[in-house]
Amino acid sequence: MKLVCVSEFGPPEALRIVDAPEPVPAAGQALVAIETIGLGYMDTAARRGESYLVSSPGFVPGYEVAGTVAAIGNGVDASWLGRRVFAILRQGGGCAERLTVPANELIPLPDDISCENAVAAGLNALVAQVGVARLPITDTDQVLVRGAGGGIGLMCVQYAALRGGTVVATSSSRERGERLLALGASSIWNRLDSDLDGPAAFDIIIDTIIGQDLPAFFDRLGDNAHYLFCGGVGGLPPADFGMKLIEHFHKSPTVHAFSLNSATLDEVAREAAILFEHIAAGRISSVVDSVMPMADIVEAHRKLDAGQAFGKIILRPDGGA
């Protein structure tokens, strides 16, 4: 079979398509014939050597897949054979034609959810779903989503709007802004502008960026407001960023931080079932940027590095589109 290997940390050209023996499921494992692979920030960060998930090159990227169980190891219930499944791969390995996965990490796909829809929402939607659920959003709240055009951000826009919040979404272009409005945002702030339009203070700020500009957004917190970190594509904040938050101590802010890594396998499975219900009912939309053959993974990473993707880039090992 074919798989993708990161030969060295660096640019997209470090990615290589290589031949490898087809894996055989050990006890407790299932062999998944992969149909779709979700590609996102975790993949590009790992490729550059900027992820805690990997310490050295020579690994196979890919952190979410969907496909069909083709074989099972000893001790795995035979009912898994032939089932369509979704899996989050905390150790990677998903950029391949086939992959062995512990059976207890498999999430069954309902008949009305395609493999494409599963990975298009996938990790990003689950982070948004669980993270936003921790916020007391009401229909009177003004909500700012920072990094709204990113994979997690556009899902946060949808979940905040679903909860009834009036959502201001940051964007880098008019086209992206129009698409965010269609997903539930009430207004758009073009982050390339000098000033942030909208309320002087927000009840809720959802941040998928962090980065050096973080302290300025603490200034936008209203009384008893909530600030959620659920991504960090902009890198680390200034070393003294906490001082700005202390300056606003009198406003009684609440700060949340959420990573899906803190959720148990059972929790992820329960949340995924809820997510699939939302998608089937049309309450949440899977957003697909493009579908590409796995052989074009270098081009896909270039697109992500350039910030050109809106929604999930989906790779297909079979080359279909």
Rank of each mutant, 00 (worst) to 15 (best):
residue 79 S to I: 07
residue 241 F to A: 12
residue 280 A to W: 00
residue 78 A to W: 01
residue 147 G to R: 03
residue 301 H to Q: 14
residue 66 A to R: 07
residue 149 G to P: 06
residue 267 E to I: 10
residue 167 V to M: 10
residue 199 P to S: 02
residue 17 I to H: 04
residue 264 T to L: 02
residue 274 I to L: 15
residue 158 Q to V: 08
residue 310 F to D: 04
residue 238 P to Q: 10
residue 177 G to V: 07
residue 222 G to A: 05
residue 141 D to V: 00
residue 98 R to I: 04
residue 318 D to Q: 08
residue 53 L to D: 02
residue 69 V to A: 08
residue 300 A to Y: 08
residue 285 S to Q: 15
residue 90 R to S: 13
residue 60 V to E: 03
residue 114 S to W: 05
residue 203 D to F: 00
residue 40 G to C: 11
residue 169 A to W: 11
residue 28 G to H: 06
residue 132 V to T: 02
residue 187 S to R: 14
residue 283 R to I: 05
residue 192 L to N: 14
residue 255 V to N: 00
residue 34 I to H: 11
residue 168 V to M: 14
residue 198 G to F: 03
residue 268 V to H: 06
residue 104 N to G: 10
residue 132 V to F: 01
residue 276 F to L: 03
residue 151 G to E: 04
residue 31 L to M: 08
residue 31 L to Y: 08
residue 67 G to H: 07
residue 92 G to D: 09
residue 244 K to C: 05
residue 108 P to S: 12
residue 50 E to F: 14
residue 174 R to L: 14
residue 38 G to F: 12
residue 175 E to H: 13
residue 247 E to H: 14
residue 284 I to T: 09
residue 273 A to G: 10
residue 164 G to H: 12
residue 17 I to W: 02
residue 205 I to D: 00
residue 46 A to D: 11
residue 124 N to W: 00
residue 213 D to T: 13
residue 292 M to W: 14
residue 10 G to K: 08
residue 277 E to F: 03
